[in-house]
Amino acid sequence: MAEPRWKPVTAWEGIAAPGLFGRIDGAPGVIIELGGHVGMASVSAPAAALGAHYGLALTEAPRAYKIGDMTLIWTAPAQWLATSDDRSLADRLGAALSGVAAVADQSDARAVVRLSGPKARDVLAKGCLVDLHPRAFGPGQVAMTVFGHINVMLRQIDERPTFEIALFRSMAESFWHWLGAAAGEFGADIRG
C-alpha cells in the first residue's frame, strides 16, 4: 500500500493566487501578501508576569512587541498571539515559558495577509470599525475587531503603512470575498 502523501497548503490555497487583480491601468494601489506558513502560538499569561520574564514593560493594551525573531501581539486580557517565521515557535515557547504562561500551538490555524501600498488604508477603511487615520492608529498598534462580520486581529507594522490581518483559516474564503471587492477599484498586486 502506498504511503499517504501530505502536501502542506496555506489557508489561501485555492482561494487567492499571486497576480494582478482588479483595475488594470496604472500602478497597483495595494500590495497584498498572502501569508500564513509561519510559527504561531497562543500565550496565556498576565502582562505583568510575561513582562517580568522578558524584562519588558508589557501592558494589558492592544499593542505588538518585537522580541528577537518573535512578534508578541496582545489579543485579550492575559492573552497573546506570538508569531515567528520559525515553525517550531510553539515548542520553543512552551519550554521557555514553563511556569510563566500556558502555550498552545496555533501554527496553520490562521490565514494571514499583509497589505501595503498607497491605497492600503483606503481599502481597510471600507470595512473597518476602527479609525485607522495616522492620528488614531500607528505602527505597533493592534485592534481585535471585525471585517464583514469576521473576527480578525489587525495590526499596523510600519509607517508605509503596512497592515497585517490574521483570522481563523476557515473564514479565509469569506474574508477574501470582502477584500477582493474592497481592493478591486484600486488594483491589487497579489503576492504569494
Binding site: 493594551a61 470599525l129 475587531t145
Partner: peptide, 11 residues
C-alpha cells in the same frame, strides 16, 4: 477599557 472606543456592533 482595553481596546478604546469601538462601534456598538462589536459588543
Amino acid at each position: 477599557p482595553y481596546c478604546g472606543e469601538r462601534d456598538v456592533r462589536e459588543f
